[in-house]
Simulated scan of single mutants.
Amino acid sequence: MTRLMSGVFALVALVAGGYAVMGWQASAPTIPENLLVGAANAQEAADIDTSTIVEMVQGAEDAPITLIEYASFTCPHCANFHAGPYKQIKADYIDTGKVKFIFREVYFDRYGLWASMVARCSGPEKFFGITDLIMKGQSEWARAGSATEIVDGLRKIGRLAGTDSDQLEACLMDSNKAQTLVTWYQEHATADGVESTPSFIMNGKKVENQAYEDFKKLLDAELEG
C-alpha cells in the first residue's frame, strides 16, 4: 500500500500567496516540481467551506451497510481494487441495495488532484464512469511523461466520457475548487485515521484492502449481525 506522509497530511496544491492556484500556458500546467506542501494552518482551513464538495455515492441511501473507500487516482493498488473486488461488490451488494458506497479521493500528488477534478467535472452522474476510465487507464496516463502529457491524457479521458473541452478547462483552472477539495480530503482522512490507500470504513470500522472473497465474508457477517 502507498503510505500517506507521516505527521500532518500533505496538501496537494501549488501555493501562491497562501492559496492554491493552477495555471496553464497553452496546454502545459505552469506548476513547479515540488507540489507537496505542509498542512494549512487552522485559520486557513476554517475559512474554507468544504460543505460545497459533493459526496460521490452509489447504492441505496437506506442500505444496511455504508462502505467508504479512500483512494488515490495514482495508486496502483486502488486501480487493482477497482478492476477486481469493486466490480464484484457493486454487482452483489451495491446494486442489490445492501451497500451504500462512498468514494473519497486522497491526494498524494498534483496528478491525482487533476484526475479528481476531471472525474468531478460533469457531476455525480458521470463521476463513477469517468473514475472507471481513469483507473483503467492509470498505467498509461500517469506514466505519460511530462506534466503536460499527463494532463493531456486526463483531458482525453474526460472528452471520451462526454465532457467538452471548454468545460474541462474550466474545471482544471478552478483554483478555489482545488483548495477546497484538498481541505475536504484532509478533514475526512484525519477524522477516519486514513494512513494508506485504498482504505475502507465499513459502518464506522476500518477495513483493510483484501480479495473479494474476504470482503464478502465481512459484508455478509455485517448483514447477519
Rank of each mutant, 00 (worst) to 15 (best):
G59H: 06
A28D: 08
S116C: 07
K156V: 10
S165I: 02
V57N: 01
G225V: 02
Q179K: 02
A189S: 15
N203L: 09
K217M: 04
A147N: 12
W114T: 01
L133Q: 14
T74W: 00
G193L: 09
V54C: 05
I201N: 09
W184R: 12
S27K: 12
V118I: 13
Q88Y: 00
D47T: 09
R120N: 12
A20S: 07
D132H: 05
G129R: 08
A28F: 05
I150P: 04
W141T: 00
E125R: 06
I89H: 00
Y19M: 11
L4I: 06
Q88D: 07
Y212I: 10
Q167N: 07
A26E: 13
S116F: 03
G153N: 10
L223P: 10
Q25L: 11
C171Y: 04
Q25N: 05
I150V: 14
T197G: 03
G17Q: 09
L218C: 06
G225R: 14
G158T: 05
P85C: 07
I134F: 01
E140S: 14
Q179L: 11
A28S: 12
F128P: 02
N34P: 08
A39K: 12
R104P: 06
V151M: 04
T96C: 05
Q186K: 13
A142W: 03
I134W: 01
V118M: 08
G137Y: 06
G129A: 11
A26K: 15
D152R: 13
L218A: 15
C75R: 01
Q210M: 15
G18M: 00
D62W: 04
H77Y: 10
A221G: 12
P76A: 05
A178S: 14
L218Q: 15
D164R: 08
F108C: 03
F215S: 08
V194C: 02
F9T: 10
D192L: 07
A211F: 05
P64G: 09
G112A: 06
K156Q: 13
F101S: 02
D174K: 02
M202K: 13
L35D: 07
I201S: 12
A46I: 06
V15R: 14
A26S: 14
S146L: 08
C171Q: 05
L160I: 11
G17H: 05
T197N: 11
L113I: 07
G18A: 06
Q186V: 13
D49V: 02
T180Y: 09
E222F: 04
Q43E: 13
N209E: 05
Q167I: 00
K100I: 09
A13L: 07
Y212P: 10
T50L: 08
T96Y: 07
Q179P: 01
R104L: 08
A28W: 01
G112R: 00
E125N: 08
D166L: 11
M5Y: 08
T180H: 06
A161D: 07
S165E: 15
A45E: 11
C78E: 02
N176Q: 15
Y107F: 15
E222Y: 06
K100M: 04
M22W: 04
Y212V: 13
E224H: 13
D95V: 05
V15W: 07
E55V: 05
D132E: 14
R3P: 00
A26Q: 14
K216R: 15
V8R: 14
F215V: 10
K205E: 15
F73Y: 15
